[in-house]
Every structure is written in C-alpha cells, then in structure tokens.
C-alpha cells in the first residue's frame, strides 16, 4: 500500500515520458528528422509548412548563456558571502530572502520584465522593442540566482569544519581559507548548483514568453527577439488542433526540452552526490 503511494512519482514520470512520446512520435509522419532540426519554423504556412525547431533550440541556448553569464558570478558570490563571511543574523535574513526570491511566481517576474525592464531596455538602448534576448537573459538571471546561491551555500556549508580549522591553524586569513580550501572542497557541489540553476533557465516558460519577443529566428544577437523551446510550446499549443503535424511537432519540442533538462538534472545530482561521498570518506 505504502509502496504503491511511494511509487506514484515514478508512475507520474513514466506517464510523462509515455504520453509526451506518444504525442511526439507521430510527427515523423509529417516531417523527417532533418526537417525537424532545420532552421525554419513556419508551421502555419499551408503552402509549404516547415517544422524546424533549430531557432527555438538556438533561442534557449542564447538566453541560457546570457542568464548564466550574470547568475553564476552573482550567485556564487552571494553563496560565498552568506556561507563564509556573513554574521549569524545576516545569514538568517539572507537565506530567508533567497527563499522568498525563489518563491516569486515566474509570471510575476515576467510581468515585471514586461512592464518595467523591457521599456527601460528599449529606451536606454534605443531599440524598437524591449522584448529581446537580453531582457529575457536578465530576467532569467534573477530567477536562477536564488537557486544557484542557496544550493551553492549548502555545498559550502557542508565542507567539514576540520578543513577550515587546519587552514586557519596554518596562518591563513579567512579569505585564503575560503579560496584555497573551502571552495575547492565544495567544487563539485558548486558545479551541481550551477547546473541546476541552468536547468531552471532552460525550463522556464512564462517569463521568457512574456519578454523575449517570440520571433522564431536563429540569431546570436542579444538585441533581437527570440523564441525558446518552452515559449514555443506555450505560444502555439492552445490554438493548434490535436493530431496535426504542428501539434505533434510541439510535443517533439517538449521531448527535446525534457531530454535537455533531465540530462542536466542528472549531471547536477551526480556532481552533488560526489561531493557528499567525498566528505563521508573522512
């Protein structure tokens, strides 16, 4: 009985895989794999529909890189400060604030991005529209930051006290201990934290949907409007009749998204698990 209840998460996972694959596989009746990985997404152009999801993969990649360029340094800096330097009371406040930041719904971030950030970017950079990859990257960075910071903080705090003592007893300053002992010891945990944060960025839907502009173009410019895998699905699926190649192509995008995020998750968990084992040996 309890075993059944416990297995529900596995069953749910199996359902996800089964149903999404079931709706995704028929796409091959309407398009070849080369077409699906092509650079043109024109599903509603009836004369010659194209179902290439490359622009969405490119868009996801672009905003993920952009957001991580900001979120990784900020998140790790915040984690290091909170774990190693902040006094007790500040630590409590900071951790609560991180938890609250992480709990803000993505639609609220998206709303903030659309109403405040995107006009600001448009005006300050003199663009026609503020709905760009840059806007989405900034917003995603803010959203991934609490994840990275709090997981990285966990990893740093898990470093045994004896390492720090040994280093302090050698005459190292607090920063030298942090930089030369604590951070290297927590390294795989920090990588795990970063990858999980990255996974958040890849999988985030609403915020990107609201601020990235959603043009399915393959570009490497942060000042252009882009569409990601997630926003691509969210945009089209409500208005696409089920059973069409377009509908199946959207589920195919879901499969690609799922594969990417799950792979990142597993890699991250592997790194985090390695950390736990490394300390346990001691």
């Amino acid at each position: 009985m309890f075993l059944f209840l416990a297995s529900v998460s596995l069953i749910a996972l199996a359902f996800i895989l089964y149903f999404i694959l079931r709706e995704a596989v028929p796409v091959f009746r309407g398009a070849t794999i080369q077409e699906l990985l092509g650079p043109k997404w024109r599903p509603t152009y009836e004369a010659a529909p194209r179902y290439g999801i490359l622009p969405m993969i490119g868009g996801t990649l672009l905003v993920t890189i952009g957001s991580m360029a900001l979120a990784i340094p900020l998140g790790l800096a915040a984690a290091t400060f909170i774990a190693e330097m902040a006094p007790g009371w500040l630590k409590d406040i900071a951790k609560t604030a991180l938890e609250l930041l992480a709990s803000i719904p993505s639609v609220v971030y998206g709303f903030f991005g659309l109403m405040i950030l995107s006009p600001y970017i448009r005006d300050s950079l003199g663009l026609l529209t503020g709905q760009t990859a840059l806007t989405a990257s900034l917003l995603l960075a803010v959203m991934a930051l609490p994840t990275i910071a709090s997981l990285a903080e966990d990893a740093l705090t898990a470093v045994p006290r004896s390492y720090r003592e040994a280093s302090a007893a050698m005459g190292a300053t607090h920063w030298e201990t942090t930089w030369r002992v604590t951070i290297p010891s927590a390294f795989s945990g920090l990588i795990g934290a970063v990858i999980l944060g990255m996974g958040r960025s890849v999988g985030e839907t609403m915020a990107v949907l609201m601020v990235a502009g959603n043009s399915p173009q393959l570009t490497f410019s942060f000042l252009k409007s882009i569409r990601t895998l997630t926003s691509g699905i969210a945009l089209d699926i409500a208005e696409t009749p089920s059973g069409t190649t377009h509908f199946h192509a959207l589920f195919f995008m879901g499969v690609v998204l799922l594969v990417i995020t799950l792979a990142m998750n597993w890699i991250a968990e592997w790194f985090r698990g390695r950390l736990a084992k490394g300390h346990l040996k001691r």
Binding site: Y163, A166, V181
Partner: peptide
C-alpha cells in the same frame, strides 16, 4: 598545530 583527528585537505 596538529589536531585530535588527522585533518588533511582534500
């Protein structure tokens, strides 16, 4: 200083 339990760095 040398401690109660050996504490080499990783």
């Amino acid at each position: 200083m040398v401690f109660q339990r050996p504490n080499p760095f990783p």
